[in-house]
Design a protein around this nucleic acid. Structure first.
Lengths: 123, 123
DNA sequence: CTAAAAGCTCACGTTGACGTCAGAGGCAAG
DNA sequence: CTTGCCTCTGACGTCAACGTGAGCTTTTAG
């Protein structure tokens, strides 16, 4: 399929797909006239890339991990990379959870203040 | 205290502290010669700001939330903002958790592949 | 065959939270 | 007094993942 269809089917922009190619995350075939042609599996690959981006990985990290993820195989160094990224994500989840708990506490206090009629002077 | 000490005690850069002032997150007093002077409570405030940044909030959001958080009081609109940010964080945690689970599965498969001696051809 | 729609390649713009450098001034110690 | 560290104010640089527009070619629909 061509780039427009892939974009439509994955929900990412045409520009993003070209950017992925620039980063060598997704290198399509070319028609004689120079147009990009993607195989069906490109759809899943794009979705995977999006998920990894959403997890906060950089293009470089994704580039290192993609062959491993798509084939289920691994070079030793890549396995360590995978584990490192997973640990980073776990740590990040912890950060976010703590921040959310703090926000929750603040919301509770603020709600209580409202109910008890405590005045407020917003900045 | 002056800016250098606050930076050392909070672990953020001098540049970052000046940036916080630019964003009106932390506005210090000035000595007659123009040097910034921070009170003790600035330490906690900086740590709080860092935590909110780490949670993915923007300067604008933090600016809106800080008076509420530090005083425990709230304007009605701010309460909604707080809830919205909390929901954003919760959604983000979900994303990260899914991505991590996928990475875990990949790690398992890769480890198994290693153990069973499946060959690997990294890109 | 023609015109619209889709693709192509540069290449600069954007956003956020700072980093970094330049040049000048303040401040306690010897 | 001067040495040396800290601080000041601009103001430009950075990085990542694209957005956006120009100007041109390819493909498709009628």
């Amino acid at each position: 399929m061509r780039i427009g269809e892939l974009a439509a089917r994955t929900g990412v922009s045409v520009r993003a797909l070209r950017y992925y190619e620039e980063q060598r995350l997704l290198v399509p075939e070319r028609s004689p006239a120079g147009q990009r042609h993607y195989p069906e599996r490109a759809v899943d690959r794009v979705l995977m890339i999006q998920e990894l981006y959403a997890a906060g990985l950089t293009s470089r990290a994704i580039l290192a991990l993609l062959p491993c993820i798509s084939t289920g195989e691994s070079a030793p160094g890549v396995l360590a990379l995978l584990a490192a990224e997973r640990d980073r994500i776990t740590a990040r989840i912890g950060e976010l959870t703590r921040a959310r708990d703090r926000l929750d506490a603040t919301i509770d206090r603020a709600t209580t203040a409202l109910v008890t009629g405590t005045p407020c002077a917003p900045a």
